[in-house]
Simulated assay, not measured.
Amino acid sequence: MNFMAKVNLSLQVLPVVPDSEIYYVVDQVIEMIKKTGLEYVVGPFETSIEGELDELLDIVKKAQTICIKHGAERVVSIVKIDYKEEGVTIHEKVSKYQ
């Protein structure tokens, strides 16, 4: 395989901050994801992103740093990865429901 296949990664960050600050901190992570230019979908529990595995894992690392920078004492992250050698897209998974 000569190219890096697109994969899907879903990220849920749970920053340990006061309740009144949770949305603000999570919004900072979503803004960082938006700036990557990758396809993404924000859901009520997690954000799903499509890209190459290495760049997606870098996003996970950056998300931790963003949460700490914005006041989290600790960050719990839940990550799901859908990987297959030929690639997988968000569109192929959800287009029939839209």
Results as ranks from 00 to 15, higher is better:
Ser10Lys: 04
Pro44Gly: 05
His91Glu: 15
Gly51Phe: 03
Glu92His: 09
Ile78Arg: 08
Val76Ile: 15
Ile66Ala: 01
Met32Phe: 15
Val41Gly: 00
Ile22Cys: 05
Tyr97Trp: 08
Val7His: 09
Leu11Ala: 05
Thr89Phe: 06
Val26Glu: 00
Glu31Met: 11
Ile68Trp: 10
Ser95Ala: 13
Gly37Ser: 08
Tyr97Asp: 00
Glu31Leu: 11
Ile59Asp: 03
Ile30Asp: 03
Ile81Ala: 11
Glu85Trp: 13
Gln12Val: 03
Val75Gly: 02
Leu9Ala: 04
Glu21Ala: 12
Val29Asn: 06
Lys80Ile: 01
Lys69Ala: 13
Val88Asn: 07
Val75Met: 06
Asp82Gly: 04
Asp54Glu: 14
Lys34Phe: 07
Gly51Ser: 10
Gly71Leu: 11
Val42Cys: 07
Glu31Gly: 09
Lys80Met: 06
Leu11Glu: 07
Lys6Gly: 10
Pro15Met: 03
Val13Ile: 11
Ile78His: 09
Val26Ser: 03
Lys96Leu: 13
Val60Asp: 04
His91Ser: 13
Met1Val: 14
Gly71Cys: 10
Ser48Asp: 05
Tyr97Leu: 12
Glu31Val: 08
Met32Asp: 15
Gly51Trp: 10
Thr89Ile: 06
Thr36Trp: 06
Ile49Met: 07
Gly43Cys: 03
Ser95Val: 07
Val25Lys: 02
Gly43Pro: 05
Arg74Gly: 05
Lys62Pro: 02
Lys93Gln: 12
Gln12Glu: 12
Glu39Ala: 09
Ala63Phe: 04
Glu46Ala: 08
Asn2Glu: 15
Lys93Phe: 06
Thr47Trp: 02
Val79Met: 01
Ile66Gln: 02
Thr65Gln: 15
Gly71Phe: 10
Phe45Leu: 07
Ile49Lys: 02
Leu56Ser: 02
Ile30Val: 13
Thr47Gly: 01
Ala72Tyr: 06
Glu86Ile: 09
Val25Met: 04
Ile81Trp: 12
Asp54His: 13
Lys35Asn: 15
Val29Gly: 04
Tyr24Gly: 09
Gly71Val: 05
Leu11Val: 02
Ile33His: 00
Tyr83Ala: 09
Val94Ile: 15
Leu38Gln: 07
Gly87Ser: 10
Asp19Pro: 14
Ile33Lys: 00
His70Gly: 03
Leu56Tyr: 07
Leu9Lys: 00
Thr47Met: 01
Lys62Met: 08
Glu52Met: 06
Val16Ser: 13
Ile59His: 02
Glu39Trp: 06
Leu57Glu: 05
Thr36Lys: 02
Ser77Ala: 14
Ile22Lys: 03
Ser95His: 12
Val13Cys: 04
Ile90Gln: 05
Val16Asn: 11
Ser10Leu: 10
Met32Tyr: 14
Tyr97Ile: 09
Lys34Leu: 07
Asn8Ala: 10
Val26Lys: 02
Gln28Gly: 05
Gln12Ile: 07
Tyr24Cys: 03
Lys6His: 12
Ser95Arg: 11
Glu46Pro: 00
Val29Asp: 02
Asp82Trp: 03
Tyr24Asp: 11
Val60Leu: 01
Tyr40Leu: 04
Tyr97His: 09
Val13Lys: 03
